[in-house]
Amino acid sequence: MQVETTVNGKAMSADVEPRTLLVHYLRDELELTGTNVGCDTSSCGACTVHIDGESVKSCTMLAAQARGAEITTIEGMASADGTLHPMQAAFMECHGLQCGYCTPGMVMAASSLLKENPNPTEQEVREGLEGNLCRCTGYHNIVKSVLTAAGGA
């Protein structure tokens, strides 16, 4: 079936099996491989993207369910001139990433969190990112990154 979406501001279309997960539509069909897959139980959040402005784990929905949606992936966060999104810049500033595998999902979830709550407490950041797992950082610097981004916003 043909699935048409707008991804990072561009009209996209691909012919996929009806059972195709959104994350595989993005990765395998549109070749936007920045969105990662870290589990098969919607536990890790590595695949988090924005759909119509809300953060969603893209392994929890079918591509077909995203027909007509406006999708933002990690590839769409920096400006066209390459300037990092403030959340990306904060992660770099605070060493909020090591291997970088959970990072796209973390950045997407964290930027969505700040949209809902522009001045979160440390505890609110931790609770807001509860659905995103990282094995490298122990979260300390991820939380610091999000608080830094909030302060700079």
Partner: peptide
């Protein structure tokens, strides 16, 4: 600051 970060932060890192 890490040289590795820009690629990994923008989805350009290739696993």
């Amino acid at each position: 600051k890490r040289k590795e970060d820009p690629k990994l932060l923008t989805g350009e890192g290739k696993f």
